[in-house]
């Protein structure tokens, strides 16, 4: 029997530096058959492991429509992520997954989508945005509000430029006050405040947000104030996870396990547990 806690080896094909402490790994399963059958939906995550360091949870940053590889963006914060940063192209990591639920992209079709991200929280949104863009005509207005501490902390800079210049979506970039240089042309302010200043048509609009817990908390408040119905708002949550399959017992919010019932939740679903999340 295949042990669900045993990973499959994957080779690092490429490493891109996103920010001083974030890298994006392009990963290909060693077993070609596994690569071909590996399918996931935007919003799902994998357990990525480095021998001798351990295993950690990462959202898949690439889109399901990107075939032949998966990408993960890793910020250096602890033992596993530091070990990831030490790796070089050609190195081997272990991957288990995909786990968790996903963004209901079908339900978003035909309407507007508002993406709100902060810092490394753009990762799961990137997967969704790429997926949405691969079927652009199914959606109406697309807007991205994304903020980071400073300009160098913005992830996927090239892609942000590409999105901004393609003409069929709105991209608002913001830097935390004090993080901007003189030549910064975007907004200055924390994401929730930047968001608050904008007029957004809530009808037929789905809002999707991910970022640091404090940002998500405030963004949810702002969206509430704008008139978004809590079932229109999706967030993807980060909790400490180990097993990814709802057994190890640490990632629950109330009776919901983030790894199994999430990580994507509507605001409606998690409203009563906010004390435990933020």
């Amino acid at each position: 029997m295949k042990d669900s806690l045993v990973p499959d080896p994957a080779r690092i094909e490429d490493i891109r530096n996103e920010t001083p402490d974030v890298v994006t790994l392009r990963l290909v399963f060693e077993d070609r058959g596994k690569m071909e059958t590996f399918s996931f939906r935007a919003g799902q995550f994998v357990e990525l492991s480095v021998p001798k360091a351990g295993e950690s949870t990462f959202c898949i940053a690439s889109a399901p429509s990107d075939r032949g590889y998966i990408e993960c963006s890793v910020k250096k914060v602890g033992r596993v992520t530091e070990a990831v940063h030490m790796l070089e192209p050609g190195g081997i990591v272990g991957i288990r997954g995909p786990y968790g639920n996903f963004f209901p992209i079908e339900a978003m079709k035909g309407g507007n989508v508002l993406f709100i991200g902060g810092g490394i929280g753009l990762v799961p949104l990137r997967s969704l945005i790429r997926e949405v863009l691969s079927a652009r005509s199914d959606f109406k207005r697309l807007s991205v509000v994304y903020g980071a501490r400073s300009e160098r902390d913005l992830v996927y800079k090239d892609e942000l430029d590409e999105w901004r210049t393609r003409g069929d979506m709105e991209v608002v970039l913001a830097l935390d006050p004090g993080g901007e240089m003189e030549d910064w042309k975007g907004e200055v302010g924390y994401v929730p405040s930047v968001l608050e200043k904008r007029t957004i048509e809530t009808k037929d609009c789905t809002a999707v947000t991910c970022g640091p817990p404090v940002m998500i908390k405030r963004v949810l408040g702002v969206l509430d104030g704008m008139g978004f119905c809590s079932s229109q708002v999706y967030t993807t949550l980060e909790m400490k996870m180990k097993c990814g399959i709802g057994k190890c017992g640490r990632c629950n919010i109330g009776p919901l396990y983030v790894c199994k019932d999430g990580p994507v939740f509507t605001y409606e679903r998690i409203k009563e547990f906010t004390e435990e999340i933020f």
Binding site: L5, S49, P51, K240, C243, K247, C248, R250, C251
Partner: peptide, 26 residues
Amino acid sequence: FDIVDEGFYRVRCWDTCSFDTFSRMA
């Protein structure tokens, strides 16, 4: 439980919600 690496062994061991590190993220 927790899943940790001990050298080149991946080990599953008991863990508990009482501990400081149980749900603390990196």
